Amino acid sequence: MTAPTSLRLADWGVIRAQGADAARFLHGQLTQDFLLLDRDHARLAGFCSPKGRLLATLVGWQHGDDEILLALPAETLAAALKRLSLFVLRAKCRLTDASAAFAVHGLLGTPAAEAWTLARDGDAVLIALPATPDAGRALRIQPADAPVPAGAAMTPDDWAAAEAEAGMAWVRGATIEAFVPQMINFEALGGVNFKKGCYPGQEVVARSQYRGTIKRRLQVFEADGAASVGQEVFHSADPEQPAGVVAGCGMRGGRTVLAAEIKLAALDGGSLHLGSAGGPALRPRALPYDLPPQD
């Protein structure tokens, strides 16, 4: 079997949560259930503001006894760590930035596996991610001084395009507090547990799910020319008001593949464009997974 292509994700970091209350503390702060976390699975989760807006998106797993690691884009790490630390209070949980101790690698072309399953390879973990239509993907997190994974290297644009093709976007600096989890299909990707107890923003997230329809969703597109995370998207019939925002993007073969959060009503007719109603046109692509039905 050909080894997957890999990329050191230098723009990612790691938070360490250590102590007897680490799982319980994270369970009370994040959108996923950390009390039932086991050694064979990771958890996709969001950290929300009281208004239900995502401050950070991350993936967490058991690293050792009373220790959980959280990997996330570095541009959201410092603010998330600072805010989480405010709520520790008397909990037996110590939060630290452990980014210097670990290297996060993205792998493309891994064997098919259910998203968020976890395999261990010595001191490294391999976490399956949602796949593109053509290839499996994974995160490999290993000690910072460990050898680079075998296989050819890919470019940051290769990885970013694959993320968009998989219909997945992580909160970045330009999109902090831009989305309620469902706006980036987070519940469809396994990032929200609606049966667990309270966490910051839980009432807003639950209300979005159970009262009325969700009016905005992440969709996959292609476009000619470059895009950037946080860039607004406009509809041809409404040049004054943005219809959405780019949540993730990467270039491949001279074209941009992007995942954008879009008003669903804007998909019914007309055309969508980057930056302005006269900007590059977006060409829709199919999501590689099903969205929950709406009432």
Rank of each mutant, 00 (worst) to 15 (best):
V125R: 00
K82F: 02
R53C: 03
Q29G: 15
G28L: 09
C93V: 14
K82L: 03
A128C: 05
A112Q: 10
A100F: 06
A101Q: 14
V88E: 08
A112G: 07
A113Q: 09
R53D: 05
D38P: 04
F34S: 08
A98K: 13
A115H: 07
L107E: 04
L108F: 04
A56P: 03
K51Q: 11
T76D: 12
A98M: 14
L118D: 05
T57R: 13
L77G: 12
L86S: 02
E67H: 04
L86I: 01
A91W: 12
K82A: 11
G60N: 10
G52A: 05
L95M: 12
D33C: 11
W61N: 07
E75V: 12
L72T: 15
F87H: 14
E67N: 06
L58P: 07
T96L: 13
A79M: 09
A119T: 02
S99R: 11
W116E: 12
A45S: 15
V125E: 02
I127K: 00
A74C: 05
A98S: 15
G28P: 14
L30N: 15
G52E: 11
D65A: 15
D33V: 07
R39L: 04
D65N: 13
L58W: 13
D33R: 10
L44E: 14
E114P: 00
D40K: 00
L70Y: 09
A42V: 01
A91L: 13
I127W: 03
E75H: 10
I127P: 00
C93R: 11
S49N: 06
L84I: 10
T117R: 02
G52D: 09
W116R: 04
L54G: 05
H63K: 09
F102R: 15
H41T: 05
H63G: 14
L58N: 11
V59L: 07
G109E: 08
H105I: 02
F34N: 15
A124H: 00
R43M: 08
K92I: 14
V104R: 04
L89D: 13
A124K: 00
G52F: 04
L35C: 04
